[in-house]
Design a protein around this nucleic acid. Structure first.
Length: 928
RNA sequence: GCUCGGGUGGUGGAACUGGUAGACACGCAGGACUUAAAAUCCUGUGCACCUAAAAUGCGUGCGGGUUCGAUUCCCGCCCCGAGUACCA
């Protein structure tokens, strides 16, 4: 029979599901391998052709690893809490659980059609109570923990209480709020329970704090920094403003250093690591306090070059700094107010983009340099950011170009501080070379000497200290939404208390509407009779989107465990994710939060690995490729009924209109389908080129409104899943972003038919023989064994598809019908095209379902050994001819043969060779 | 501005440590089969020159360098994409 992909694929998908072929066992004599995809949010639109790209790659890898003798864990699930379902609920009144359920069903159907080897017995859904019970449980562990800097890890809060009992707060080294009290054990004993809780909250790894948050009025919720782009929400693009709110936060800053160091131990794409480093934004320096003249205030600045402090010639506050009004003299009041008004007018974007213009205003006030005693002017300028460091900066014009421009512009002194600084009347010189001059008690020191000396001095004088500054802030954890995990906390006397563990999961209550209340409270405030057993009131905000995804890879290890988030044995066995494939858009969100929770769980001894994802691959984004038709407009610019082919459109006045890419093939429009597509085109007329209507092309985001969404279902219907899988890989390197087009899919489909035909005779009857394989057949086979192995291991899937085509072309030409050869071909191809391979495997006489766990053929280099090689002969580096020579020959013999060759003599053109370069098995190059 | 990618035929792309640039496919052209079309199969296909073939020349963003030999290494520049940004 001809290649009946539809029958074959349905048959094997059913077989795999019924037999649970890909169920992973948590104990095995085989080595383990954990392949994870970033689980999807099940959106209403279903999968488009871009989604499966990474899943196909990870599936090929998983299947390959099974064949290589690994016990592979390859699970899938759904990140099913989220905003779109809630927005839909607000509009329609439909409970998000219902739409989510329906969307998941669609996703599952689509995923099953592609033939993935997921172990569905381990499926997780973050919105299921049996799952979010453990998300809540982890929240409780965070609440019950503090970060002890002495041993650099999180500990149970009880060890902190012990310290308070025995020695008070004095020798506690913790990551905590800045306003912690200092007290003796005797003080602690006198604290009321409320006072104690209030103080402990300042140390807990999840805590409540009044903080400035990104408030999105349109969405009615708070957004994390990575959910905001240029002042607009990432989802929906609504304006975001700053607002002060009591909020749950996660003390991720406690882990900043470990998150940074861990990056050096994992095999991730360098750009992602770099993005995380920038996001964390560690800078090592010092904080220094400048005394304000005529005021008791001290302005604290952060600097990475404390050694330049004798070169300070002014100080700058951010215009938004809270002391600006107070520290402005009456004489300068007008100038400062004008300046502030002027900066406010500039949008955030302008302010960031315009880094050339120097601007600022003098406050009239002077501050005193604590090191030199010099008095310097206090300015405000918008190049200082209120949100970073202390919102105040010291200006050292000789060492910093921006300070130099400022000083030059406003006529402030420029003081040389290192003898190695050059041309500082032309520009700043940031050198660390040489010895200090004009620098009081550090004169003559080097950079390396000055830094520790000054840090000590500042600390002794109590005017500063060495300090490490991070750009990253603690992660805000509350969302004023319905469709998220309830936070397992209740309030009494304004203080938060955890539920008892037995009360988990704290279920989402039913409510009548999914909007915030009229008084601006979160939707959960609408829940009636939702009262904690212990009295008081429940926390009304829910967890953010990233909560459920910050630990899900552990749940897969033991997905159905009711007594634990995962058993000790499962965690011990599966350890960490060996290969993680997903998009780079999660660089500073999911991937950072996951690393944080992972480290925390390890600190408490629940898990073993410092890093959750050993190797990360980012698949590229599949963009849309839109097609256009060109409608001709008449002289008055009115649309006509005639459409002109793209190549001829310059001769007319036209409007470009999106046309559904599904009625266009290889950029040629199907005219009948076009007429039937929409009523308005029913009577369309065309101006063709070469008898065809060629459409215009543009690369855009894949979206419904651009009619460029390609759905995997249609392609599977037409070509089958095996073709789709191979074609997506054939498209180009996995990590590269590329526009989708279906132009080459025929080639892949033809290849699979050709492969199928290898096993069949002219009449399409299955036909192989048991002859002894020929040398040529073995060579083809072993070439592809090696190639596919190498390609898969370096994630170069596109090149192995090409190699398969070459191998099948070769074997077809050799008329190979040999069982041994063909059976190995089936195994090698099976990770890419599993359905057709399962079918052929059984036709070859093997037991159904054993293909996935058979052995990948072993590469034998002997079969590739050649005794002859067609040497390219080049003259002066230009290829001229090929010369077939035995590989045993060495240079003198080769030279003799070459010089005797008539054809070669022609190229010499009578001249004699100066030098002959011979590289065995590679090339002969003759220099004339 | 900085950091990281990338620039190769009409198109997607290949060339893994410097060694025959353009594998494999799409598209296109021609042919076979067919009453015809589709499907299938075969042949050709970097560009220029030439009626054609042969030959020759030019060719991996641009300019230079190293080398017997450079898509690959080095220097300078241009362009595209991603990330990030007065970070003190």
């Amino acid at each position: 029979m001809d290649y009946q992909f539809k029958e074959i694929e349905q048959k094997w998908q059913k077989f795999w599901a019924d037999k649970q072929t890909f169920k992973a066992e948590t104990n095995s004599t085989k080595p383990k391998y954990y392949v994870l995809d970033m689980f999807p949010y099940p959106s209403g639109a279903g999968l488009h052709v871009g989604h499966p790209l990474g899943y196909i790659a990870s599936d090929i890898f998983s299947r390959y690893k099974r064949l290589k003798g690994f016990n592979v864990l390859h699970p899938m699930g759904y990140d099913s809490f989220g905003l779109p379902a809630e927005q839909y609920a607000i509009q329609t009144g439909q409970h998000p659980a219902i739409t989510t359920e329906a969307n998941i069903a669609t996703y599952r159907r689509q995923l099953d059609q592609i033939g993935f080897s997921f172990d569905w017995s381990r499926e997780v859904r973050t919105s299921e109570p049996s799952y979010y019970k453990w998300t809540q449980w982890i929240f409780m562990q965070l609440f019950n923990s503090w970060y002890n800097l002495e041993n650099d890890k999180a500990e149970d809060i009880s060890t902190l209480i012990e310290k308070f009992n025995s020695s008070g707060s004095a020798d506690v080294k913790a990551v905590c709020d800045e306003d912690t009290k200092s007290f003796l054990p005797s003080d602690w004993a006198t604290f009321t329970e409320e006072q104690k809780q209030e103080e402990l909250l300042k140390y807990r790894l999840t805590y409540l704090r009044e903080s400035t948050v990104n408030w999105c009025p349109a969405l009615g919720t708070v957004l994390a920094n990575d959910e905001v782009k240029d002042g607009f929400s990432e989802r929906g693009g609504y304006p975001v403003e700053q607002k002060k709110m009591m909020q749950w936060s996660m003390r991720i800053t406690a882990y900043a250093d470990r998150l940074l160091q861990g990056l050096d131990t994992i095999d991730w794409p360098e750009p992602i690591k770099e993005m995380q480093r920038n996001w964390i934004g560690k800078s090592v320096g010092a904080s220094v306090k400048f005394q304000v003249e005529g005021n008791d205030k001290q302005i604290e600045v952060f600097t990475t070059r404390v050694d330049t402090i004798f070169g300070v010639s002014y100080l700058v506050l951010a215009p938004e700094h809270e002391w600006v009004a107070e520290l402005t003299t009456p004489g300068q009041k007008q100038a400062v107010e004008n300046y502030i008004a002027q900066t406010k007018k500039k949008s955030e974007l302008d302010r960031m983009a315009d880094t050339k213009t120097v601007s600022g205003a003098f406050t009239g006030t002077y501050v005193v340099n604590p090191v030199s005693g010099e008095r310097v002017q206090l300015w405000i300028a918008d190049y200082v950011l209120a949100g970073y460091g202390t919102g105040a900066v010291m200006g050292v014009p000789s060492g910093d170009q921006r300070d130099w421009l400022f000083a030059t512009h406003f006529n402030l002194p420029i003081i040389q501080i290192l003898d190695a600084q050059k041309d500082i009347d032309q520009q700043a010189d940031a050198t660390k070379e040489g010895k200090y001059i004009n620098s009081g008690f550090i004169n003559g020191m080097t950079y390396k000497e000055a830094i520790p000396f000054l840090n000590n001095w500042l600390e002794e004088q109590k005017v500063g200290k060495a300090k490490v500054n991070f750009r990253q802030r603690d992660a805000i954890f509350g969302r004023q939404r319905y469709w998220g995990e309830p936070i397992p906390v209740y309030f009494k006397n304004n203080l938060p208390y955890l539920l008892n563990e037995e009360e988990l999961p704290l279920l989402l209550p039913e409510i009548d509407k999914y909007l915030p209340t009229e008084t601006g409270e979160p939707p959960l405030a609408r829940a009636e009779d939702w009262i904690p057993a212990a009295g008081g009131t429940y926390e009304l905000s829910t967890m953010p989107g990233w909560a459920g995804s910050s630990w899900y890879w552990y749940r897969y290890m033991d997905a159905n465990n009711n007594g634990d988030f995962a058993s000790k044995e499962a965690i011990e066995y599966w350890k960490a994710v060996d290969l993680y494939i997903g998009g780079s858009e999660h660089a500073t969100g999911h991937l950072l939060y996951s690393r944080f929770w992972n480290k925390f769980l390890k600190d408490l001894g629940y898990t073993k690995e410092e890093e959750p994802f050993k190797k990360l691959i980012n698949q590229g984004m599949i963009q849309g490729r839109s097609n256009f038709v060109y409608r001709i407009n008449d002289a008055d610019g009115k649309p006509t009924n005639t459409y002109v082919s793209a190549g001829l459109r310059k001769e007319y006045k036209t409007s470009a209109l999106h046309v559904d890419v599904n009625i266009v093939e290889n950029d040629t429009l199907d005219l009948n389908k076009f007429k039937n597509w929409r009523e308005e085109y029913a009577n369309a007329e065309f101006i063709l080129e070469g008898g065809k209507y060629i459409c215009g092309v543009e690369v855009e985001k894949m979206s419904k409104s651009k009619f460029n969404v390609v759905n995997p279902d249609d392609l599977i219907e037409r070509y089958g899943a095996d073709t789709l899988r191979m074609y997506e890989m054939f498209l180009g390197p996995l990590e590269q972003s590329k526009p989708w087009n279906t132009n080459g899919i025929e080639g892949v489909f033809k290849f699979l038919r050709k492969f199928w035909r290898l096993f069949h005779n002219e009449e399409w009857h299955f036909h192989v023989n048991d002859s002894v394989p020929t040398k040529a057949e073995l060579k083809s086979l072993h070439k592809i064994i090696k190639k596919v192995q190498d390609d898969i291991e370096r994630f170069s899937f596109n090149t192995s598809v090409s190699s398969f085509m070459i191998a099948v072309n070769e074997l077809t030409d050799l008329k190979c019908k040999n069982r041994q050869i063909l059976e190995d071909m089936v195994i090698i191809l099976s990770p890419y095209a599993p359905h057709i391979c399962e079918e052929l495997w059984v036709l070859l006489g093997n037991e159904a379902g054993t293909l996935s766990y058979t052995k990948f053929p072993t590469f034998n280099p002997e079969y590739l050994v050649e005794d002859e090689f067609a040497y390219p002969v080049s003259v002066n580096g230009k290829m001229k001819m090929n010369l077939n020579l035995s590989l045993t020959l060495d240079q003198p013999e080769v030279e003799a043969i070459l010089l005797a060759n008539e054809q070669f003599q022609k190229f010499l053109d009578g001249k004699s060779p100066k030098k002959i370069i011979f590289v065995k098995g590679k090339i002969i190059n003759v220099v004339v």
